[in-house]
Simulated assay, not measured.
Amino acid sequence: MHVFTEAQRVLDFQNACEAQDLPLMGKLMNESHESCRDLYDCSCPELDATVAACRAAGCIGARLTGAGWGGCVVALVDAEKKAEIASKLDVLFWSEPAAGISLTYL
């Protein structure tokens, strides 16, 4: 069930990105983490606590990244709240949005 619902979330996330809909992007990230945790069983209490801390600090959305169990979380932050959130979390690194990749079909 996780795989099917995650596939739809990926499509929905792409549409939200194109629409610059940060609240929807965050909602989808949160749903993704919950699905990874509850349906795919690839989270752990430490990751769940880190995701919860990100959300409590004001991140728009947060989810585990990679295959889980590795202790990595990616969070979506409104650039205007970066300093506020940075004061509440021990952030390993910040990244900026990228244009993404371009594919050419032959």
Results as ranks from 00 to 15, higher is better:
residue 41 D to G: 03
residue 68 G to N: 07
residue 54 C to S: 13
residue 45 P to Y: 14
residue 62 A to M: 10
residue 66 G to N: 08
residue 63 R to F: 08
residue 36 C to N: 05
residue 6 E to R: 14
residue 31 E to M: 11
residue 32 S to L: 04
residue 15 N to Y: 07
residue 66 G to M: 07
residue 4 F to A: 07
residue 11 L to R: 13
residue 33 H to K: 03
residue 5 T to Q: 09
residue 54 C to G: 15
residue 63 R to V: 05
residue 42 C to G: 02
residue 27 K to N: 12
residue 21 D to E: 00
residue 34 E to L: 11
residue 21 D to H: 00
residue 22 L to G: 01
residue 31 E to N: 15
residue 27 K to T: 14
residue 24 L to F: 10
residue 53 A to R: 09
residue 17 C to P: 06
residue 8 Q to T: 03
residue 5 T to M: 02
residue 38 D to I: 09
residue 33 H to F: 02
residue 31 E to I: 03
residue 39 L to I: 01
residue 35 S to I: 00
residue 14 Q to M: 11
residue 25 M to C: 11
residue 24 L to T: 07
residue 50 T to Y: 00
residue 21 D to R: 00
residue 36 C to K: 05
residue 49 A to W: 08
residue 42 C to T: 03
residue 33 H to I: 01
residue 14 Q to V: 10
residue 36 C to V: 00
residue 59 C to A: 15
residue 41 D to W: 01
residue 44 C to Y: 09
residue 40 Y to C: 05
residue 12 D to I: 03
residue 10 V to M: 09
residue 13 F to T: 13
residue 50 T to R: 06
residue 59 C to L: 07
residue 45 P to K: 06
residue 11 L to G: 13
residue 33 H to T: 00
residue 14 Q to K: 09
residue 63 R to E: 06
residue 13 F to A: 15
residue 54 C to Q: 11
residue 63 R to Y: 11
residue 41 D to F: 04
residue 8 Q to E: 11
residue 49 A to H: 08
residue 47 L to Y: 02
residue 37 R to T: 00
residue 7 A to G: 06
residue 52 A to W: 07
residue 48 D to F: 00
residue 17 C to F: 10
residue 35 S to W: 00
residue 31 E to H: 12
residue 59 C to P: 14
residue 43 S to N: 01
residue 52 A to E: 15
residue 20 Q to V: 12
residue 32 S to T: 12
residue 68 G to E: 08
residue 18 E to F: 06
residue 9 R to M: 06
residue 52 A to Q: 15
residue 60 I to D: 06
residue 47 L to M: 04
residue 49 A to K: 09
residue 55 R to A: 08
residue 26 G to K: 13
residue 6 E to Y: 13
residue 68 G to T: 03
residue 65 T to D: 06
residue 40 Y to F: 09
residue 67 A to L: 03
residue 67 A to P: 02
residue 23 P to K: 10
residue 9 R to G: 02
residue 55 R to P: 05
residue 14 Q to Y: 11
residue 35 S to D: 04
residue 46 E to I: 05
residue 62 A to K: 15
residue 16 A to V: 02
residue 8 Q to R: 13
residue 61 G to E: 14
residue 4 F to Y: 02
residue 34 E to S: 12
residue 6 E to H: 12
residue 34 E to D: 14
residue 51 V to T: 13
residue 38 D to M: 02
residue 63 R to C: 09
residue 10 V to R: 09
residue 55 R to V: 07
residue 45 P to M: 10
residue 43 S to D: 08
residue 68 G to H: 05
residue 31 E to K: 05
residue 29 M to H: 08
residue 20 Q to G: 15
residue 64 L to P: 01
residue 22 L to C: 00
residue 15 N to G: 14
residue 65 T to L: 06
residue 41 D to S: 03
residue 24 L to G: 03
residue 24 L to I: 02
residue 38 D to K: 10
residue 37 R to P: 00
residue 45 P to I: 05
residue 48 D to S: 01
residue 61 G to N: 14
residue 59 C to N: 10
residue 11 L to S: 10
residue 59 C to G: 11
residue 23 P to H: 05
residue 25 M to W: 08
residue 61 G to C: 13
residue 58 G to E: 13
residue 65 T to P: 10
residue 19 A to I: 02
residue 6 E to T: 09
residue 30 N to C: 10
residue 7 A to M: 04
residue 38 D to F: 01
